[in-house]
Simulated assay, not measured.
Amino acid sequence: MTAMAEDEFHEETAEDTIERLVAERDHWKEVAEQGLEPRMRRMRFEGGEFEMEYTGQVAETIALAMVGHFKAMGAVNYVEMNVHDREEPFRRYTVTIQKVGAKSPADKVAEAEARVLELEFRLAALENVSP
């Protein structure tokens, strides 16, 4: 037998078994204490801003998946994902993930609307000057 094959047949010592079981117990104890479901850790409404913070393994997994999707899409400012309600009236929602400090869709719309208004005023001024 090779050294690798011998390792495969290595029997676990009592100390190894205890160590493995303690680690497994501690893992499941932490899961039981923290829970798998997302739990609201904090919520505040201050200065016109609404902020919620969630905790839990599921919340962390969802957050990491969203960041991974953001990067995979090559997003610079934000990325949008559609979510469909399973109950009537089966509405569609959009979840937007925005990089902190980057322009949001609302920021971009506000800038575009301001620019349109500015150009409409300029056009109106030019039409009034023309003979």
Results as ranks from 00 to 15, higher is better:
His10Asn: 10
Gly47Lys: 11
Thr13Val: 05
Leu36Trp: 15
Ala102Thr: 02
Met73Asn: 07
Asp26Ser: 14
Ala65Cys: 01
Val95Leu: 02
Glu30Ala: 12
Pro89Cys: 03
Met52Glu: 14
Gln34Leu: 13
Met1Tyr: 02
Ala75Arg: 00
Val100Pro: 02
Asn82Ser: 08
Ser130Tyr: 13
Pro105Ala: 14
His84Pro: 00
Arg115Leu: 11
Lys71Pro: 01
Val116Leu: 04
Ile18Trp: 08
Ala112Cys: 03
Pro38Tyr: 09
Ala72Val: 09
Val95Tyr: 07
Glu46Lys: 14
Arg122Leu: 10
Val109Ala: 04
Asp16Pro: 09
Val58Pro: 01
Arg91Phe: 03
Asp7Pro: 04
Glu11Ile: 07
Val31Gly: 05
Thr17Ile: 10
Phe45Gly: 08
Gly48Ile: 02
Ala63Met: 06
Thr2Arg: 07
Arg25Val: 02
Asn82Phe: 06
Glu46Ser: 03
Glu6Thr: 03
Leu36Asp: 14
Val79Ile: 06
Glu33Ala: 13
His10Glu: 03
Lys29Thr: 07
Glu60Pro: 00
Gln57Cys: 10
Thr2Asn: 12
Leu126Asp: 01
Ala106His: 00
Thr55Trp: 12
Phe9Glu: 06
Pro105Phe: 08
Val116Ser: 10
Pro105Thr: 03
Glu127Gln: 14
Glu30Met: 09
Ala65His: 05
Glu88Ala: 09
Gln34Gly: 13
Ala114Val: 04
Lys29Tyr: 09
Val58Ile: 15
Ala23Val: 14
Glu6Ala: 09
Ala59Asn: 05
Gly56Gln: 13
Pro38Cys: 08
Leu64Glu: 15
Val58Thr: 12
Phe70Cys: 07
Met1Lys: 08
Phe50Ala: 05
Glu53Pro: 06
Val67Cys: 09
Met66Val: 08
Ala23Arg: 15
Met73Gln: 12
Glu60Asn: 11
Lys99Asp: 09
Pro105Ile: 06
Gln98Val: 02
Glu46Gly: 03
Ser104Tyr: 06
Leu126Trp: 14
Asn128Ile: 04
Gly35Glu: 09
Val67Pro: 02
Val100Trp: 04
Leu36Met: 14
Gly47Val: 09
Leu21Val: 13
Leu126Met: 14
Leu126Asn: 12
Arg86Phe: 04
Val67Gln: 11
Phe70Gln: 00
Arg41Met: 10
Arg20Asp: 01
Ala65Arg: 04
Arg42Asn: 09
Met52His: 11
Thr17Arg: 05
Val109Ile: 02
Glu87Asp: 00
His84Glu: 05
Ser104Asn: 07
Gln98Arg: 05
Glu15Asn: 08
Phe90Ile: 09
Glu120His: 02
Phe9Met: 13
Ala125Trp: 05
Ala125Asn: 15
Arg25Gly: 12
Val76Cys: 03
Thr17Ser: 13
Glu80Asn: 04
Val58Lys: 07
Gln57Asn: 10
Glu113Val: 14
Glu15Arg: 10
Leu119Gly: 07
Phe45Gln: 14
Thr96Ser: 05
Leu123Pro: 07
Ile18Asp: 15
Gly47Glu: 06
Asp26Thr: 08
Asn77Trp: 01
Glu120Gln: 13
Ala102Pro: 00
Asn128Leu: 12
Arg44Gln: 11
Phe9Ala: 14
Ser130Ala: 11
Val79Ser: 01
Gly35Phe: 08
Glu118Gln: 10
Gly48Asn: 11
Arg41Val: 05
Met40Lys: 15
Thr13Tyr: 08
